[in-house]
């Protein structure tokens, strides 16, 4: 999806003309969830003990609302009423969407998830911080690495060691008393 959005004509410096396609996919997805809600909702078994209003009624209601709103949004989009992207202090409204950075962050979160069990939480957290800081453009790399390791150890010490949150220390820190809850 990302490539189609970047490849759309426009290029006037703002992301506005390229946006409707992505927005239409999102609105279409809302319709789809509603439809799935209906189909899967019809499969919810109704036990004889259920009263007048069984377990299907509310799911049907919500699914119906989603389909209706999704279609309404699609019509709005076709008429050219696009959504206003959220603003914020750290957001530069004049730049194009940087899909690469978003992809990198998602990737590092995925690596983090994969590392928690085999290597322990502190290692996974340090990798996540280092990777994210690098993706977001922090330099130099060795400072990122130092901050990542120190932060991961502090969090492990405070939350696992002091507050008793069971973050797995991993085999590297297994024997160190202060990092274990």
């Amino acid at each position: 999806m990302s490539s189609s959005i970047n490849g759309a004509p426009g290029g006037s410096g703002t992301a506005a003309p390229a946006r409707p396609l992505g927005e239409m996919i999102f609105a279409g997805m809302i319709v789809c969830i509603g439809v799935v809600g209906f189909v899967a909702g019809a499969g919810i078994p109704i036990p004889p003990s259920a009263g007048v209003v069984g377990p299907r009624v509310f799911p049907f209601l919500v699914s119906g609302i989603m389909v209706a709103i999704g279609i309404g949004l699609l019509i709005q989009l076709l008429r050219g009423h696009t959504g206003a992207a959220e603003e914020g202090e750290d957001i530069d409204p004049s730049v194009k969407t940087d899909w690469l950075t978003v992809g990198k962050l998602v990737g590092f979160l995925a690596i983090h998830i994969a590392l928690i069990v085999p290597l322990g939480w502190p290692v996974a957290a340090a990798v996540l911080f280092f990777g994210s800081a690098w993706s977001l453009g922090a330099k130099p790399w060795w400072r990122n690495a130092i901050i990542a390791v120190v932060l991961a150890l502090i969090l492990q010490f405070v939350f696992a060691g002091l507050l008793g949150v069971s973050l797995p220390p991993g085999f590297l820190l297994e024997g160190v008393e202060i990092f274990n809850g």
Binding site: D90, H112, A124, A125, L128, F129, A138, I147, L155
Partner: peptide, 20 residues
């Protein structure tokens, strides 16, 4: 606080909260 560190920190905190 430099923004790359700020948002990296937010991600680490969020991941920790989710895991716990």
């Amino acid at each position: 606080i430099p923004r790359p560190y700020l948002y990296s920190g937010i991600l680490v905190f969020a991941a920790m909260g989710a895991f716990s």
